[in-house]
């Protein structure tokens, strides 16, 4: 990951095109989020107490949406915060090649000079943003260690190459997410990392809640949303029986959107659920049968 500054670093707004430095990204309107349990309150208190948060849960169960929602909701925490704009949110999608310099920053050679570029985590520390490391277990283990000093009372980020120590600005919070579903011995969180966070467990919402989420997000009818939520529940019963993960709320929302656009429910579910979920023909057929039981032709 390289970030280069070209031209002015202010927000440029064109036709549906917006370029801005990562640390300036804020949510400008309230994202839809339906609290399932007490996670909102928990997060708020954690934020105020500078306790880093670990979000666990299967894919598509709303972890990312929750962080966005919280960043918007916590707008009053920053001096310039307003109802229009939340706390800055920097999201890093972790992958197996993510290195420490990708996060902290690196020197670039420019002309005959070298120039230092801050990485996303450094930027978050400077501006006091919520730094969200998505799918943290995907990152290399040596990478995850560098966040340790940031997560305890010290709230420091050592930048070795520059010989600096950055103290996190007010409002900085580290949030990790990971999916325990496909964890293997290789991809597990180290305990030294794990025990620096409070954890909020995410699971699929109940059928009624999911109906509500699908209805609002997809803009489909209540009846369709209810049937989709029912489908979700049934398909999730197949977890561990051929399916590594149940169908995510996100996929159900996609299906709902397609249906709302006039696609027939069966084909919407075929593309958004059956084919999306698995390549195993037998399981596909089983899910198809569930779909065809729920939705008439």
């Amino acid at each position: 990951m390289t970030i280069t500054h070209e031209g002015p670093s202010h927000t440029a707004i064109g036709d549906g095109f917006r370029r801005l430095p990562v640390e300036e990204f804020r949510l400008t309107s309230e994202p839809y989020y339906l609290p399932i349990r007490n996670e909102v309150v928990l997060f708020e208190h954690a934020y105020r107490e500078n306790i880093p948060v670990l979000l666990k849960g299967p894919t598509g169960s709303g972890k990312t949406r929750f962080v966005e929602y919280m960043s918007w909701r916590l707008h009053d925490r920053t001096p310039e915060g307003s109802v229009e704009e939340g706390v800055p949110l920097i999201t890093v999608a972790c992958h197996e090649d993510l290195t420490a310099s990708d996060l902290v920053g690196r020197y670039l050679i420019e002309g005959s000079e070298t120039r230092w570029i801050d990485g996303p985590i450094t930027r978050a520390v400077r501006v006091g943003a919520i730094c969200y490391l998505d799918e943290i277990v995907e990152a290399r283990k040596d990478t995850t260690v560098l966040i340790h000093p940031l997560t305890d009372y010290r709230r420091l980020l050592p930048v070795e190459k520059r010989g600096e120590l950055l103290a996190a600005a007010d409002g900085f919070l580290l949030v990790l997410s990971y999916n325990p579903g496909y964890q293997s011995a290789l991809k597990d969180l180290k305990h030294s990392t794990r025990q620096r966070f409070i954890a909020i467990e995410f699971d699929y919402p109940s059928r009624d809640q999911e109906t509500e989420i699908v209805r609002v997000e997809a803009g489909c009818s209540d009846a369709i949303a209810a049937e989709l939520a029912k489908l979700g529940e049934k398909v999730r019963n197949l977890k561990e029986h051929g399916l590594a993960e149940g169908v995510s709320t996100r996929l159900l929302v996609y299906a709902g959107k397609l249906i709302a656009r006039g696609i027939s429910p069966r084909s919407a579910c075929q593309t958004a659920v059956v084919w999306a979920l698995t390549d195993d023909v037998e399981i596909q057929r089983s899910i198809e049968e569930v779909v065809s039981s729920i939705f008439p032709e």
Binding site: V235, N237, L238, G242, E282, S286, E289, V290
Partner: peptide, 15 residues
């Protein structure tokens, strides 16, 4: 039967 088995599992949440 393999399909029905999964189908039944999906519907009942039981094996």
């Amino acid at each position: 039967s393999p399909i029905l088995r999964l189908y039944a599992k999906a519907l009942t949440a039981q094996t």
